[in-house]
């Protein structure tokens, strides 16, 4: 196989041999999985939009009472930075700067991910305090169906990072591990993309109503 790109996104390059070639099929499959996941998010977004109105709110608290935009902005910055740090981890892998540098970038990403989750949980606690709970209205059901779904995805991503750190330590940089890091990267950037949607549609959109 030549230098040309075998799949969309960052390719490892021919130097990586089996990992590069194997990625053609496996990463392609993962892209398709993400497309499917994107359909799920798209539908949940659509459901959210159908109830983001007074009928859906059913007299319950509105976005203004429950959202803390400053906190959400901070979360956005954290999550977007974590995408950058993950990018550095992938580049470290592509340019073979060693296990240690890959692992340290992954650890930074992990901490950013956990930080994001911690802030998000704090926001959720605030929402529960003001009565913005799913049992209150269709609107809050849709919110709690959408935003925590992203949160669960981030949690899975964090666990995945932990598993990859263990595998980097025990298995080393073998082709399967490289391909898993590549896929984890796609997944992590995908979550960023979803968050951009949540930030614009749910949080900023909620501000506009």
């Amino acid at each position: 196989m030549s230098e040309h790109n075998l799949h969309p996104g960052l390719n490892l390059g021919a130097r990586h041999g089996a990992a590069h070639e194997g990625a053609e099929t496996i990463l392609f499959g993962f892209w398709i999985f993400l497309m499917s996941d994107l359909v799920i998010f798209g539908l949940v977004f659509a459901s959210y939009l159908t109830v983001a109105n007074p009928t859906g709110a059913a007299g319950g608290p509105g976005p203004a009472e429950a959202f803390d935009l400053r906190s959400v902005f901070a979360q956005t910055v954290i999550l977007l930075s974590s995408s950058l740090t993950f990018g550095f981890a992938t580049l470290a892998m592509r340019h073979e700067t060693g296990r240690r540098s890959i692992a340290s970038w992954l650890i930074v990403t992990l901490f950013l991910g956990i930080g994001f989750l911690a802030m998000e949980l704090r926001d959720f606690a605030h929402m529960i305090d003001v009565g913005a709970v799913p049992s209150r209205s269709g609107f809050w059901s849709a919110f709690w169906g959408l935003v925590p779904l992203h949160g669960v995805h981030v949690t899975v991503g964090c666990l995945w990072i932990v598993v990859m750190l263990i595998q980097l330590a025990t298995l080393g940089l073998i082709p399967v591990v490289k391909m898993r890091v590549l896929r984890l990267g796609l997944y992590w950037h995908f979550l960023d993309l979803i968050w951009v949607g949540i930030f614009s549609i749910v949080y900023l959109g909620g501000q506009m109503r």
Binding site: S47, T50, V51, T55, G56, A57, A58, G60, P134, S135, R136, S137, G138, F139, W140, S141, A142, W144, G145
Partner: peptide, 18 residues
């Protein structure tokens, strides 16, 4: 399932379900 298990209101008659 969320409606049935967790008292969500996606599709219920009351509280803005649709």
């Amino acid at each position: 399932a969320a409606d049935r298990y967790l008292d969500f209101h996606f599709f219920t008659n009351d509280l803005g379900g649709n």
